Amino acid sequence: MSVTTPRTQAPQTASRSISGFLSARPVWLVGVLATLAGAVVTEVFALVSRAAGVPMEAAGPGAKEAAEIPVGGFFGGVVFWSVAGVVLAVALARWARRPARTFTVTTVALTALSLAGPAVAPHTATSTQIVLAASHVVAVAVIVPMLARRLAHVQR
């Protein structure tokens, strides 16, 4: 190739450039970014459901009646529970033989268990139970792949 001939490079896709950006960052930072992304997407999902007429009232075990889920409640819930996921990811990055696989299997199993909560929520409309369960899946669909992709690049 001569000096005057321009080199052609395949354009980077957004996915590849984001993946490259994330693979060079600490696991905890990718966890924080994934958590924020998951929380925003889940809150938007909840707001769209609310706008579609789904009643955002749910009751916990032992409650006499349902209480309103406030705007921002889904965001806060995702952030709260994701802290444990980020801690798990950091620990697996340090000690697991196959951190990405272990993280993915563990989080999918925990998500499956978490679906029991909305399913048995007393005094809660079925449509709300469905939105609550779906919101778990939405959050995981955003957060877990980002962290698993980062964990796949752990250097031993």
Rank of each mutant, 00 (worst) to 15 (best):
M1C: 02
V3D: 13
T4Q: 07
T4C: 01
T5P: 01
P6Y: 02
T8L: 14
T8S: 14
A10H: 06
A10T: 13
P11W: 02
Q12D: 13
T13I: 03
R16E: 14
S17L: 13
G20W: 01
G20T: 11
S23H: 10
A24Y: 00
R25Q: 15
R25W: 08
R25L: 11
P26T: 07
W28M: 05
L29Y: 04
L29Q: 15
V30I: 07
V30S: 05
A34K: 03
A34L: 11
G38R: 02
T42S: 14
E43C: 09
V48T: 03
R50Q: 12
A51R: 10
A52L: 15
V54H: 04
P55Q: 12
M56C: 06
E57F: 10
E57N: 05
E57K: 10
G62D: 09
K64D: 12
A66P: 06
A66T: 07
A67Q: 13
I69Q: 04
P70M: 10
V71F: 13
G72S: 06
G73F: 10
G73H: 03
G73C: 07
F74Q: 04
F74G: 00
F75M: 02
F75H: 02
F75P: 00
G77W: 04
F80G: 00
W81N: 08
V83G: 15
A84W: 11
A84Q: 08
G85F: 03
V86R: 05
V86H: 04
V87Q: 03
V90S: 03
L92V: 08
L92K: 02
A93I: 01
R94V: 15
A96T: 08
R97N: 05
R98I: 01
R98E: 07
R98N: 11
A100V: 11
A100R: 09
R101S: 09
T102C: 04
T106I: 14
T107L: 15
T107P: 00
V108P: 02
V108A: 13
T111Y: 07
T111K: 00
T111S: 06
L113P: 00
L113R: 01
A116R: 05
G117Y: 14
G117V: 14
A119H: 07
V120D: 05
P122R: 09
P122Q: 11
P122T: 07
T124R: 01
A125C: 06
A125H: 14
S127G: 14
Q129G: 14
Q129V: 02
Q129A: 09
Q129N: 10
S135R: 03
V138S: 04
V138M: 06
A139Q: 04
A139W: 01
V140H: 13
V140A: 15
A141G: 15
I143L: 08
V144I: 12
M146N: 00
M146E: 02
A148P: 06
A148T: 09
R149F: 06
R150M: 05
L151S: 01
H153S: 13
V154R: 12
V154C: 05
Q155S: 15
